[in-house]
């Protein structure tokens, strides 16, 4: 009997946490309201008090809470990151999700009893890398980068005795996570350092000659004609000119949806499924989490996975199976 997949769901606010738990999340992951996590967006995330209340709410309903501390501490200023680890531990978080080697080393030393997961931002894309984190810091679970195909995930699970968690829905990083400086190249702020990608403060939308033009840090990232589906100007989802042709060079503005692949992911030895979208609203959380709750339960019973229509909440209102299909590369 295959173990039921754990459903790990995002929350950017206490309201979203409650929505996720109510919709059937096994786990909610979240971050503090500062640069210690990779969704450091304005108006988003949790204060210490909000985390305490969120933990109470989740635990009372049998759900867990993971605290994401997955940016890379600034040289000369480890304080905020270490405090985040200390506070997550003190408040009773069920696990912390880490990317930085130095911080993971700190957490393993200061809070050995606190379960440590490896963030996707650590970009551990092969068995040797994951084994390194496991052996060096007692990492219990690795969130796999979205660069691996399902056969590669299966091979990895055969080689390393560790829990693996994979993304199944939401915004898709096209680049290897934790190894992308595109955002900081034009805005000065990056996922690794500031916890932001293509930050809103550097975004401008302007109507020009009947087109909606989106710019990031002064660079035109896209332009939409009337009626064309728009997207947030994340650099890797922008339209650029290469070889004389305007195109979505890196990736179309699509969302990952691997709901139909749950049986394959189970067979590949995956432990947990992750839904992206801490920056999305309660409406998104409720809808997506409920859909995946049904799908995970069906897959565990060996039933066919219900077809879930989540197109309306996907970026560009298009979806992709991403790299899980080899043709994506």
């Amino acid at each position: 009997m295959t173990k039921k997949l754990e459903l790990v769901c995002p929350a950017g606010t206490p309201a979203s946490l409650r929505a996720a738990v109510d919709a059937g999340a096994d786990v909610v992951y979240l971050g503090f309201r500062d640069a210690t996590n990779a969704r450091n967006f304005p108006g988003l995330n949790f204060s210490r008090d909000e985390l305490r209340a969120g933990l109470d709410y989740a635990h009372a309903r049998g759900a867990h809470v993971y605290v994401t501390i997955n940016t890379f501490p600034r040289a000369g200023d480890p304080g905020p990151w270490r405090e985040a680890v200390d506070d997550a531990s003190a408040l009773g978080a069920d696990a912390i999700i880490l990317a930085d080697i130095g911080l993971t080393d700190y957490a393993a030393g200061a809070h050995p009893e606190l379960r440590r997961h490896l963030s996707v931002q650590a970009s551990a894309s092969n068995a040797e890398a994951i084994r390194f984190y496991k052996e060096a810091f007692g990492i219990k679970r690795a969130v796999l980068p979205r660069v691996l195909t399902i056969p590669e995930i299966a091979e990895l699970n055969r080689k390393v005795a560790i829990e693996t968690e994979v993304f199944v829905f939401g915004g898709l990083c096209v680049m290897a996570e934790g190894r992308c400086a595109l955002s900081s190249y034009v805005t000065g702020e990056s996922p690794n350092i500031n916890g932001v990608c293509s930050p809103a403060a550097h975004v401008r939308y302007e109507e020009e000659e009947g087109r909606l033009v989106s710019r990031l840090g002064g660079y035109t990232v896209n332009a939409f004609i009337e009626g064309e589906k728009a997207g947030y100007p994340t650099l890797c989802k922008g339209r650029f000119v290469a070889g004389g042709q305007a195109r979505y060079l890196f990736e179309e503005p699509t969302s990952l949806n691997a709901v139909h692949m749950l049986p394959e992911l189970m067979a590949a030895g995956v432990t947990a499924l992750k839904i992206e979208g801490r920056q999305r609203g309660r409406a998104y959380i409720s809808q997506v989490v409920a859909a995946f709750r049904r799908a995970v339960d069906a897959a565990a019973e060996g039933l066919s996975v219900p077809r879930e229509d989540l197109v309306a909440v996907t970026e560009g209102q298009r979806k992709t199976s991403g790299v899980y299909e080899k043709t994506w590369r």
Partner: peptide
Amino acid sequence: PFVNIYNEGTLAYM
């Protein structure tokens, strides 16, 4: 330069 060494803790570990 492709390995993320952003701070003293990581540098010391490496």
